Measured scan of single mutants.
Amino acid sequence: MPSETPQAEVGPTGCPHRSGPHSAKGSLEKGSPEDKEAKEPLWIRPDAPSRCTWQLGRPASESPHHHTAPAKSPKILPDILKKIGDTPMVRINKIGKKFGLKCELLAKCEFFNAGGSVKDRISLRMIEDAERDGTLKPGDTIIEPTSGNTGIGLALAAAVRGYRCIIVMPEKMSSEKVDVLRALGAEIVRTPTNARFDSPESHVGVAWRLKNEIPNSHILDQYRNASNPLAHYDTTADEILQQCDGKLDMLVASVGTGGTITGIARKLKEKCPGCRIIGVDPEGSILAEPEELNQTEQTTYEVEGIGYDFIPTVLDRTVVDKWFKSNDEEAFTFARMLIAQEGLLCGGSAGSTVAVAVKAAQELQEGQRCVVILPDSVRNYMTKFLSDRWMLQKGFLKEEDLTEKKPWWWHLRVQELGLSAPLTVLPTITCGHTIEILREKGFDQAPVVDEAGVILGMVTLGNMLSSLLAGKVQPSDQVGKVIYKQFKQIRLTDTLGRLSHILEMDHFALVV
């Protein structure tokens, strides 16, 4: 994948999101292997301009796509893939009243899908469409860049269908997702969380590099694949309309690839034109409109599966009536509230959605109805927002919020430890010299600072030695090549209790 991002070429006709291997024109390309080798690009942008032909009021008969309808489940399912879809609609009884809503608040519980998330729908649909058009064949390999849930859905379907599955996901995604993927037989590649989507090191860039190296491999490409919004247009939206008897006044959905909100909203605009569509985008993402909503100094966020630093091709923002931004604290607070007060075992993005819903639905009156999409299960986040310690460490809970008995030293300040200034190293000294210094002084790690004293990161003896043994660096290389740029900081005025929580999850903390 090139470091400079080429513009994806656009073909003359058809839909841009065809499933299957992508040609340089962004659509299915038939021909000899030699032709494909000559024409197939190194990668295709996940934010390529959409060429979708959908228009409100256009006859369904003019759609270029294969459409399906929700099917009634048999008493005995032939395999677990038949437990994807037909998820329950559940009334939220307490939270709406707590925040003064007059309307009825309903939750579409997508964590009841077989793999635990709304992404099971698009995973199965992308595979079925690729099999139907002859792209996927027995023994082929599926590769997908994902925040985890699409990966789980694909790995689940691949396990049943017999495909090899490789999932490329950023490091910030939970260990629970990784464990589930491994249990399903998927191979996992992790990428830096802070890598831009168009960087060769991003999950998108690495996935395309693997595709170019592995024979008979395919990126189904949830960011561009029409099967993504079509899955929701054909099934999720129809289920909502049936469950609500066609009567709903507002739908609120958090947005990642945009397939969920695009597919549902398009069908609702056709069948229930008075329904307002509300999009939820986390602070630090750029999906919301108008652009002024996205202006923030924050560039990272903890909530998973929603928000991006690019506009995915499948996201149709014209069908969203209003956007709201959400933050991590309210997302996790509301997710825990949904679990504790409503018994809905949902993930953090569901918290984002409901946090926005109780604001947006203030305009609705008694007798009206708001539906929220709860995308995934708490299963993926047992060591994250479900953990009091994690919430404390991230600053989303305060010590006084917890009532468990603490040891005698818990409320003492870090400054009472009488710490001395640490050994520091410059980023320009060599790895070999740094190892000598650390061994001589008896230290395992040291902060790396520039000549102005600005902290650049941390270097550890173990990481340097393993990097040297693996051949990633040489003793003569500058130590700046092996620094940890993500590390926890703590102030002298913070409590030892807070430091204790940090050290339970990290090997060190830097006192500043």
Rank of each mutant, 00 (worst) to 15 (best):
S123C: 05
Q222V: 07
E9G: 10
F99V: 05
H67F: 12
Q55S: 12
K94A: 09
E144I: 07
V10K: 15
Y233H: 08
S50L: 06
E128N: 08
G246F: 02
V180W: 02
G96D: 14
Y163K: 05
L105Q: 02
D221L: 04
T257V: 02
T262D: 02
A159S: 02
G100S: 07
I143K: 02
S27N: 14
L220Q: 05
S147F: 04
V255W: 04
V168T: 02
S174G: 04
P12G: 07
Q243P: 04
V178R: 15
P21T: 13
K97Y: 09
P2D: 15
L124F: 13
L42R: 14
Q7D: 09
L181F: 02
R209K: 11
E270F: 10
S147H: 02
T236C: 05
E37S: 12
K82T: 02
T260M: 04
G11P: 02
N149R: 06
D120V: 02
Y233T: 02
I261W: 04
D35I: 15
S217V: 02
I95L: 02
T236V: 02
T257C: 02
E62K: 14
T236F: 07
E62R: 02
H66P: 08
E187F: 06
P12W: 09
F112A: 07
R182S: 08
E104P: 05
D129A: 15
P21F: 02
I219G: 02
G115E: 11
R132M: 15
G85V: 12
R164F: 05
I240G: 02
P170F: 05
T150F: 12
D79I: 07
A265T: 14
D198N: 10
Y233A: 02
S199T: 07
D133L: 14
S199L: 07
P273C: 13
N93E: 05
E176M: 06
P12D: 02
K211I: 09
A114P: 02
W208A: 14
L220I: 02
P64L: 07
P46W: 02
A159L: 05
T13A: 12
H232Y: 05
N216M: 02
E9V: 10
A237V: 13
G139N: 07
P41F: 02
D120Y: 15
K25V: 07
A158M: 02
R190L: 06
V168L: 07
T260I: 08
R91T: 15
I152C: 04
Y233L: 04
P46I: 08
E131F: 04
L251Y: 06
P273W: 11
F99W: 12
C15R: 04
E213Y: 02
D79W: 05
P138L: 12
I188C: 02
I142V: 11
T191H: 05
P41R: 02
V255F: 02
E110Y: 13
M173V: 06
I80V: 12
G134M: 15
K97D: 13
A183M: 07
S254P: 09
H17F: 06
V90R: 10
H66Q: 15
K137H: 09
G263C: 02
A69S: 02
L184W: 02
T13R: 02
K119I: 02
F197Y: 06
G139Y: 08
E40R: 05
V160A: 15
N228S: 02
G100P: 02
D129P: 02
T257I: 04
C15N: 02
K98R: 05
H67G: 05
T260E: 02
